[in-house]
Design a protein around this nucleic acid. Structure first.
Length: 507
RNA sequence: GGCCCCGUAGCUCAGUGGAUAGAGCGGUGGACUUCGAAUCCACGCGCGGAGGUUCGAUUCCUCCCGGGGCCA
């Protein structure tokens, strides 16, 4: 929310005597902004909503920013704002520059986002790519909101899966079939062709794929290291012995049942490693822990939160971000997603087909609670029709206009001024840009990067419409319109960055 | 059997209490001697079903139906 909008809301709240929320009416003829506060107050005050609305409209009409305030429908107050308000709003976004919309968090935290975390038994798949695309965008949103963010990748370097993986590579070296349920595929043959432990090389390959995908990790954590701290973690938990095993009393902390930590034979469970890992994370000083998990892991959330609580942290300071699975189809037929059978779609192949920008956009432009269905053939074939290019084109188009500006210079924000009445398309675009801080704040709070891509399309839409109707260079309003272009470019570039997509100067 | 997610336009999806529910793709017809036509403009169809909560429900609650997932 811009300062100007906040000021307007504060003034209206004072006039109404109750918190006012402004919204954009679906029909612009209703005004620039509207509020339903009279409808909400009517029940509480026992008065007709229209009567309250009339009073509020009268008070609002006296504000400098308001050109016209009217009552409509059952008790909405519609506001039309003055051109000078729009000018100020534009100046504000220009003056903020790169920081426009940032720092929305009232209480910045140190947070860790743990994501992907696939064991290095094969290349990253498209399913894991959704984890990375979503997790990384949430991390970007959180950082933009003012939090300090670390991205971590966690993997099991010592379990049965890794033994099977190494055995599969070894079998390939000897020209034998892989063990039962072992791994195969071209990548196994490639790893077998090189000597030594294949695990570090596999991990390096995964990291390279993710870097190419613009998902960067600050830290890599190994389970073999975490496991050494199991005793310290267990000492801090609420435990009891039964049937010769050691249990965590997770049922007293929101989990559906208690969990075994140490089996009767003395070996720790995976859950014990989880406990050590959670303890280690908090010990590093994080206020909040994010686990980005596929929907098939939703059953783990309660026990992880139980661990947080037993370790003395609020259970909701450990947040699981659950995303639904990706279903790939090829020519309308479902493709199998079994990594061990080697018929899965790898991230690198996916990127080769549709590009990093389209891949990242596609994987976050839907709600994380929504199953994604992607026809790989269609995505590749129709990439030029992908909305991501529509948004990128708006950026490139503006870059072109600004290159052609006299001297290549755009006026400073305070030099931007009105030159006659603003056109409808100009007012709509300014309003759209003014929404950005609220959109970014809500996207961060809801951990919902798809709100950014949805918004970016609207910005591009408003800009293309503005551009089509109004000449920028050489017009009497050149300075103002160049300012509008520059402000739009900043917002579009920021939106693209928040979802990991490049903002091209030329296309 | 228990739990989680989802049913919105022909298709893929936005919309977590407001006015006439929006985009993209696909379809039809228009707009380039003009700063970038990868653009713009015009035209159609829709909230799975039944109750409840209230001034008002696609949105919140209950049940049912349908799709996906996890656990047992």
């Amino acid at each position: 929310m811009t300062d100007l909008l906040q000021q307007l809301i504060a003034d209206l709240t004072l006039a109404a005597g109750a918190p006012v929320a402004l919204e954009r009416p679906s029909d612009v003829d209703h005004g620039d902004y509207a509020t339903n506060v009279a409808l909400q107050l009517a029940g509480r005050l026992g008065r007709p909503p229209r009567e309250i609305a009339e009073e509020l409209a009268g008070a609002a009409g006296n504000l400098d920013a308001v050109a016209e305030a009217s009552v409509a429908g059952p008790g909405f107050v519609n506001l039309r704002l003055t051109d000078s308000w729009f000018l100020q709003a534009l100046r504000e976004t220009l003056a903020a520059g790169e920081t426009f919309g940032s720092g929305s968090s009232a209480a910045p935290e140190r947070v860790q986002v743990e994501m992907v975390s696939a064991n290095p038994t094969g290349p990253i798949t498209v399913a894991s790519a959704r984890n990375g695309a979503y997790g990384d965008s949430v991390a970007r949103l959180l950082a933009f909101a003012g939090h300090t963010v670390e991205r971590e990748y966690y993997y099991n370097d010592a379990g049965g899966q890794m033994d099977l993986f190494r055995a599969s590579v070894e079998a390939a070296r000897l020209g034998q079939d892989p063990p039962e349920d072992g791994y195969h595929g071209d990548y196994i043959a490639e790893l077998a062709a090189q000597p030594g432990d294949p695990v570090p090389r596999m991990l390096a390959g995964i990291e390279a794929s993710l870097e190419r995908f613009r998902v960067h990790f600050d830290t890599f954590e190994r389970q073999s290291v975490v496991e050494t701290e199991i005793p310290e973690a267990i000492a801090l938990l609420d435990t009891f012995e039964q049937d010769g095993a050691l249990w965590a009393r997770t049922s007293a902390h929101g989990d559906e049942k208690d969990r075994v930590l140490v089996r009767t034979d003395g070996t720790p469970t995976y859950f014990a490693a989880d406990a050590a890992y959670v303890r280690r994370k908090y010990a590093k000083g994080f206020d909040r822990l994010f686990y980005v998990l596929g929907a098939d892991h939703h059953g783990y959330v309660a026990r992880l939160q139980a661990l947080a609580e037993m370790l003395g942290h609020p259970r909701d300071s450990l947040e699981a971000l659950i995303y639904q699975l990706v279903h790939l189809t090829r020519g309308g037929e479902a493709t199998k997603m079994s990594k061990r059978r080697g018929d899965v779609v790898f991230l690198d192949d996916f990127i080769d087909e549709i590009g990093v920008d389209a891949a990242r956009w596609y994987l976050v432009s839907r709600g994380h609670d929504q199953t994604i269905e992607i026809d790989v053939d269609l995505a590749a074939e129709k990439s030029a029709k992908n909305p991501v290019f529509y948004v990128q084109y708006a950026h490139a188009r503006i870059a072109g206009i600004l290159r052609n500006a006299p001297g290549g210079v755009v006026a400073q924000s305070h030099e931007v001024d009105l030159a006659g009445a603003l056109a409808a398309e100009e007012r709509e675009l300014v309003k759209r840009l003014a929404e950005f801080p609220a959109v970014a704040a809500e996207a961060a709070q809801r951990r919902a990067p798809h709100a950014i891509s949805t918004y970016a399309i609207r910005v591009a839409d408003d800009f293309h419409r503005f551009y089509h109707h109004h000449k920028v260079l050489g017009s009497p309003q050149e300075t103002l319109r160049l300012g509008l272009c520059a402000a739009t470019r900043n917002v579009v570039a920021r939106c693209l960055d928040l979802v990991g997509v490049e903002a091209p100067e030329r296309m």
